[in-house]
């Protein structure tokens, strides 16, 4: 804690090893000192080491300078260097609270699942719902579809705005939807019209979970899919409410930020309980 140190001197980290990407955040209780997102490796240990190594290097810190580290995500049990692991549901709730203090409802769309939760004043989860093992309604769905269209995943978001007559994807299943997409391509439908249909299909799946939770207060969307404007705007229509975004940090980092917030809280409670 030589440099970059905050007033009370604690520097902590959050590490979120997801199915598609791994995220790390170095945090001093107020500011994010550094952050890193990488593509997950086959082994969660490796993803965790790489992403945390990069984040530390960016902050100019050594592992010993991290007072407490919380791990989360699907690979959390396998992260070698964490002090504690916490479920991604709770981490996303805490992260959302940090990103938008007025948030009461959180929608997180990750690589292989989709969660919606209601959070209380302290950022703790009051109720949550998750999709079940199925790729539609997850980041993986968009990724597969973008690949089928031959475009980058970040391009997909603008298609809802650019489309002239968006297609309808009949199937709620990612595999069948992909077959639909190929069919539309063969019929010469424009990539934008298909892309808009993909965003709508995705938003419809997510809306089921959101509406089942009966959202209240400010809704914040986190996870990589929050960057897809097409999905967000369609979801707003389907849910009938405005969905807030955050500029404070990349929404994809919410889980890692939440983990870091919990880590910081640990250093503040009853001294360092390491």
């Amino acid at each position: 804690m030589k440099q970059n140190s905050s007033k009370n001197g604690s520097i902590v980290a959050g590490c979120d090893v997801g199915s598609l990407t791994s995220k790390a955040v170095i945090f001093d209780g107020k500011r994010i000192l550094s952050q890193k997102i990488i593509r997950s490796k086959p082994r969660p240990e490796e993803s965790a080491r790489n992403v945390m190594g990069d984040a530390l290097a960016l902050a100019g810190l050594s592992p010993e300078q991290i007072e407490y580290c919380v791990g989360t995500g699907y690979g959390r049990e396998k992260i070698p260097f964490v002090n504690e692991t916490v479920s991604e549901i709770r981490c996303h709730a805490r992260g959302a609270k940090w990103l938008l203090p007025t948030a009461e409802t959180v929608i997180d769309i990750g690589g292989q699942d989709c969660k919606t939760m209601k959070i209380n004043r302290d950022g703790e989860v009051e109720r949550f719902m998750t999709n079940d093992k199925c790729a539609s309604g997850t980041g993986r769905f968009l990724e597969v579809m973008a690949r089928t269209l031959g475009i980058g995943i970040d391009e997909l978001g603008s298609h809802t705005r650019l489309a002239k007559s968006p297609v309808t994807l009949a199937a709620a299943c990612a595999v069948w939807a992909q077959a639909d997409v190929v069919q539309y391509l063969n019929n010469g439908v424009s990539v934008e019209d298909i892309g808009a249909g993909i965003n709508t299909a995705m938003a419809s799946r997510v809306a089921i979970l959101v509406n089942a939770l009966k959202p209240e207060g400010d809704i914040l969307m986190t996870g990589g899919v929050a960057r897809n404007q097409g999905v967000v705007s369609t979801l707003e229509k389907l849910v009938g409410r405005k969905i807030k975004k955050t500029r404070k940090a990349d929404p994809q980092l919410a889980g890692a930020i939440g983990a870091a917030c919990i880590a910081f809280m640990k250093t503040q409670n009853k001294g360092a309980e390491k």
Partner: peptide, 27 residues
């Protein structure tokens, strides 16, 4: 939670949900 009957294959998915639920009770 929804699951399949049979040798427990979805442990990661189920454990994450149950873990988050226990956290919800604890907090």
């Amino acid at each position: 939670i929804e699951r399949e009957y049979g040798p427990l294959v979805e442990t990661g998915r189920i454990k994450m949900r149950i873990g988050a639920f226990i956290e919800r009770i604890q907090t």
